[in-house]
Design a protein around this nucleic acid. Structure first.
Lengths: 211, 211
DNA sequence: ATATAAAGACCGACTGGTTGGTTTGTTCAC
DNA sequence: GTGAACAAACCAACCAGTCGGTCTTTATAT
């Protein structure tokens, strides 16, 4: 084991470097050197530097989209679904932080052919969230005066921004952060009745004992 | 009047191009051409392409920081202060959207000497928000179980993310968006008592008539 | 007021380093 | 022997930055 293929080594190295210096701050030569590969090996595995960037994007968005759809299927009320999606999404930051950073910092530089594919999945992800909010409002669990789009983008923004400040070895565990976000969201969008009902469920995690 | 200096023309053009194509997706030659300037004119006004990037960053962060400090001084309760800060911040998006996009997309590429200066002001801005939240908790207006940092970063993230989706000519006015954010935030952080009191103030804007 | 000098704004052809990508030839394993 | 990987030289395009020079404005001297 621990037998990483050349391709994996290249991706890992590129990810680390891109995260720190940005796509344009890293040359192919440097990726090649630091992953103990060769120019030939690089271009054997990737058509171009662009394709490598696309690959990184794709791995991440595909994973996140799947997780969201999974969460949607595994739960059956809007509140539970939303919590599960947010929770799984936040947890992704622990594993995929470099991917996420690259995803949100460098997508400008994707060639049109690539960015189109990525955007399709990204939109699909957004739609899952919008859908849950819409269903929550219809079911009377979420406040009816909310705008689906703004509320959805508020949640997405709040969660996504984590990539700018989350430190894997920082004072906050990713679970604590997720719990705060969920608490924040539920207080905002649940109706008064729904709050009563939800107060003792697994997702209403933020109690006085946490700082 | 309408006499724009060369420097202004260069900045405006650069801003437009950077927003769309990213810092590294735009050459000095292109900036020069599209602003009807020359290479010499460019380097007469800026020491380097880097300095231009720094300038754009600085204008924005300085403005935002001032607005936040202003808002802090003009109001006197934590709730009012927080609302005023968020409101002024969101409104900035209308005027400074290109600046903001460049600020959050391209700051990786600032040379260390520049990014240090920028980060100082950015931290100062964060501290204003943290301070207000801290005071809100102490005053009993905000829920005591909240983490100052996570709550602060949630708010900042929610608001900042706007730059990814806000369209100046879109269906939502910037005021509507600001009202939603404030509604979202207040529902989350106010204590029950504070909510009763605040319900009729100027900031609790989101009522049933808005979709 | 006029001539002259100095300063600053601006121009654009040119340069030199960088970098993504190619090519050629080789090694090694299955 | 076929394909995965390496090594190294090479190329063409690109692009930030330079430099010598012009034109305009301002300051100075007579």
């Amino acid at each position: 084991m621990a037998e990483k293929t050349l391709k994996e080594r290249i991706i890992d190295t590129a990810l680390r470097l891109f995260e720190q210096y940005g796509y344009h701050g890293v040359t192919v030569d440097r990726i090649v050197t630091e992953s103990n590969a060769s120019k030939g090996g690089f271009y054997h595995n990737f058509k171009s530097k662009d394709e490598l960037l696309y690959h990184i994007h794709d791995v991440f968005i595909t994973y996140v989209l799947n997780k969201a759809q999974e969460a949607y299927q595994n739960y059956h009320t809007p509140t539970e679904r939303l919590c599960a999606i947010v929770q799984s999404f936040v947890k992704v930051f622990h594993l995929y932080k470099p991917h996420i950073t690259v995803f949100y910092q460098e997508s400008t530089y994707l060639k049109p052919e690539y960015s189109q594919k990525i955007n399709e999945k990204r939109d699909e992800f957004k739609q899952v969230i919008f859908q849950v909010i819409r269903e929550g409002i219809e079911a009377g669990e979420f406040r009816s005066e909310l705008s689906v789009e703004i509320t959805g983008m508020s949640i997405i923004g709040m969660v996504n921004w984590t990539y700018k400040w989350y430190k894997p070895n920082g004072p906050m565990t990713i679970e604590q952060i997720a719990a705060h976000f969920i608490d924040f969201i539920l207080h905002s969008i649940l109706t008064e009745e729904a709050k009563q009902k939800a107060e003792n469920t697994m997702f209403f995690l933020l109690n006085k004992q946490m700082v």
